[in-house]
């Protein structure tokens, strides 16, 4: 827990004294780029990115299940890389662009991973599903032609109490194939 609860604002905003700028406890204004759109919000410095997305931006597709980095339900992309949004403060996002589950389908067209999840029934209660979809879609960006083991590794941090793992693997492999076709 060494890095937790830092109150650094963005990059390069160190105070004159050489220490980091101290903000809070009152809300501060920040601008987040979420799904390609700049959104300016007032956040308490202690607010996590997950809370800001859900509570302030109404993007409730991102789920909070454990709230402390153990389940990956809250997975979003920061500049295309997956992060647990419950483990990051909103004020630490800075200029990096955030992609959430709501931003994955483009122009009403499902991402191939989303389409394959439906076809292969890779979801049951689906509370974990947005996070898993984000991880599997990110995998295909890094590794367009994954093996089953690659998919298992990509979702190793996700907990799915409904046990969708086998269908998640099948769906992601099928999505990789569909993208190449």
């Amino acid at each position: 827990m060494v890095e937790a609860a830092s109150v650094l604002v963005g990059q390069g905003e160190a105070a004159e004294s050489g220490g980091p700028a101290v903000v809070g406890p009152d809300p501060v204004q920040i601008t987040l780029t979420v799904n390609g759109v700049a959104r300016t919000i007032e956040v308490e410095p202690r607010m996590t990115l997950a809370e800001a997305l859900r509570g302030l931006l109404g993007l409730t597709g991102t789920k909070i299940s454990c709230g402390r980095g153990a389940c990956s339900a809250c997975t979003v992309w920061l500049d295309g890389a997956t992060v647990c949004s419950c483990m990051m403060l909103a004020i630490d996002v800075g200029t990096r662009s955030v992609t959430t589950i709501e931003g994955l389908a483009t122009g009403g067209r499902l991402h191939p991973v989303q389409a394959a999840f439906i076809e292969h029934d890779a979801l049951q209660c689906a509370f974990c599903t947005p996070g898993i979809v984000m991880s599997c879609a990110a995998l295909l960006e890094r590794t367009p032609d994954p093996t089953a083991e690659d998919v298992q590794r990509a979702i190793a941090g996700h907990l799915c109490r409904c046990g969708t793992y086998p269908h998640v693997v099948a769906a992601t492999l099928a999505a990789a194939k569909a993208r190449k076709a």
Partner: peptide, 17 residues
């Protein structure tokens, strides 16, 4: 396929939380 599959994979499904 599940009828609510699209809502579930796009995060549109409204859970109690």
């Amino acid at each position: 396929p599940r009828q609510n599959g699209r809502a579930k994979v796009t995060g549109a499904t409204r859970f109690t939380v």
